[in-house]
């Protein structure tokens, strides 16, 4: 059963990555399972790519699992919001489509993010991350054309609108969510969350005797 599921995930992801998604070829039940597995795998990969941030905040053990759940939930929320946008846009262009199909389609567009672990690469990691985002947009364009059965031009317009609106939503909606996350983090760990390792540079006296030492 499990191997069948992973084979299905692999087949769906492979098709999406090569810009030939078969959204309608999978049953509704399987779509939910494949979508959930994809969201978790993307979250695991994203966390691997963000190793520096995890390390600087000493995220491990239970904290790691909590972060994983939060990241997977974030991925699901982001792509389901995009699916809702596509649903509205579908109505606007006269192609009403089942929301669940759109949710599955947008989650398939997250397939390139399965490779987010490459962002760990020093120097070029953030650039590779941007390439993956661009690839994700191409997949979104392909699934939009496939799901709405429209031409490439209209599909590009719809995908770009959904993509840009999603970006704007995460730009304006992200900071409040980050504040909530930081409060939860501080409440659990008793120390503020570092946004980047650059915060280390602002701590004076790190070479003083005893300021930094090996854990006992």
């Amino acid at each position: 059963m499990l191997s069948d599921l992973f084979q299905l995930v692999l087949a769906e992801v492979g098709a999406a990555l090569t810009l030939q998604p078969h959204v309608s070829g999978v049953g509704a039940g399987d779509q939910v399972l494949v979508g959930a597995v994809l969201a978790v795998l993307v979250a695991v990969s994203m966390l691997a790519g963000e190793s520096a941030l995890l390390a600087i905040n000493r995220v491990r053990g239970l904290a790691y699992w909590l972060t994983l759940v939060m990241t997977a939930t974030g991925v699901l929320l982001l792509y389901l919001t995009q699916a809702s946008l596509l649903w509205v846009l579908g109505l606007a262009i006269g192609q009403p489509t089942d929301w669940l199909v759109l949710a599955y389609a947008t989650l398939l567009a997250a397939s390139p993010k399965l490779l987010s672990f490459v962002q760990i690469v020093p120097g070029f990691g953030p650039f590779l991350g941007r390439l993956l985002s661009a690839w994700g947009f191409l997949v979104l364009w392909a699934v939009t054309a496939s799901v709405f059965a429209v031409g490439d031009g209209l599909a590009l317009l719809v995908a770009a609108t959904a993509g840009l609106t999603g970006l704007a939503a995460s730009h304006f909606g992200g900071p409040p969510l980050v504040r909530v996350r930081d409060r939860i983090w501080t409440a659990i760990t008793g120390r503020p969350m570092r946004r980047s390792s650059a915060e280390l540079l602002q701590v004076p006296g790190l070479l003083d005797d005893g300021a930094v030492g090996e854990r006992r």
């Binding site: 000493r58 491990r60 120390r191 701590v203 790190l206 003083d208 030492g213 090996e214 854990r215």
Partner: peptide, 12 residues
């Protein structure tokens, strides 16, 4: 880094 204790700020 994982082997180091959380840095202590000892002076301004």
């Amino acid at each position: 880094w994982s082997q180091q204790e959380e840095p202590v700020q000892r002076r301004p």
